[in-house]
């Protein structure tokens, strides 16, 4: 586990409304320390992606709005900045479903990541080599159109592209989506390496609770737009409720899906 510094990103009790009517986040608070990997867990529709987009400000393009609360990055409010400003400050989002530029080559995809930088071609080329060091597979495929590469390669391209902006923090949305278990491990290994060597902090939305808690330092569990549980990754892994609801393990043996979730215990979190 990387040693953790002071607060890098602080989300204070935010509420997000889409299209002026749909209330998606109902007061989410979380903190990412400098140098940490923080996992944001939960089922479909829990609000993971919305939380990430609220930070990166991609929300506005989807008619979403942060109506309450505040988001601080390095102690400054960032709620009203454009995505472009945020990338310049060092916060980049890697979107769910990879979103590579299909008709550009892998290398061109990576270069678009450096769009906001003004430190000259030589520096950018140095970082390109750095990305190829972490993802040797991308170097082999640098001249192929990104649309024709495999899912794993596209995920690597998307992460590499974010790295090209020299971020302090990457908001990583569902990196495991649609990938083989072995590849998921590979991607997460690289994430944790980037965290240690390049000092990039991660806020990571995942449905794959098992893998996410293996690599993260700290975790938050979202349900219906609220944080229902948070804690050190290790303690979450051993939490009975997490085991039962998200890891499919239970002391009472296998449960039938017919049975409803064990709400008595969960009420304790909501209280």
């Amino acid at each position: 586990m990387a040693e953790q510094g002071k607060d890098l990103l602080v989300i204070n009790n935010i509420e997000v409304i889409y299209d002026h009517v749909i209330l998606v986040l109902k007061g989410v608070s979380l903190t990412v320390h400098d140098g940490a990997i923080v996992a944001l867990l939960g089922a479909n529709g829990a609000g993971k992606t919305t939380t990430l987009k609220a930070v990166s400000n991609l929300l506005r393009a989807e008619r979403g709005e942060v109506t309450k609360g505040s988001i601080l990055y390095k102690d400054k409010r960032i709620d009203s900045l454009t995505p472009n400003d945020l990338v310049k400050l060092g916060v980049v989002q890697v979107m769910e479903g990879r979103h590579c530029f299909e008709h550009l080559t892998v290398e061109e995809n990576l270069l678009t990541g450096a769009h906001t930088r003004r430190d000259g071609r030589a520096e950018v080329m140095k970082d390109l080599e750095m990305v190829y060091r972490y993802f040797p597979r991308l170097k082999e495929r640098r001249k192929s159109q990104a649309g024709y590469t495999s899912g794993g390669e596209q995920q690597m391209t998307a992460i590499g592209r974010a790295l090209m902006a020299r971020p302090n923090m990457i908001l990583l949305d569902e990196p495991s989506m649609g990938l083989a278990p072995q590849l998921v491990e590979e991607i997460f290994e690289i994430v944790s390496e980037l965290n240690k060597k390049e000092k990039v902090s991660f806020l990571l939305a995942e449905q794959n609770t098992m893998v996410a808690l293996k690599y993260a330092d700290y975790g938050y569990i979202l349900e219906n737009g609220r944080v229902v549980l948070d804690g050190e990754a290790k303690s979450l892994r051993e939490n009975e409720d997490v085991k039962e609801f998200y890891l499919g393990l239970s002391t009472a043996g296998r449960k039938s899906f017919r049975d409803t979730k064990h709400y008595r215990r969960r009420k304790r979190w909501l209280a």
């Binding site: 991609l58 980049v92 979103h99 769009h115 906001t116």
Partner: peptide, 8 residues
């Protein structure tokens, strides 16, 4: 969207 996300 992706272009926005990388800061273009």
């Amino acid at each position: 969207q992706a272009a926005l996300a990388v800061g273009i």
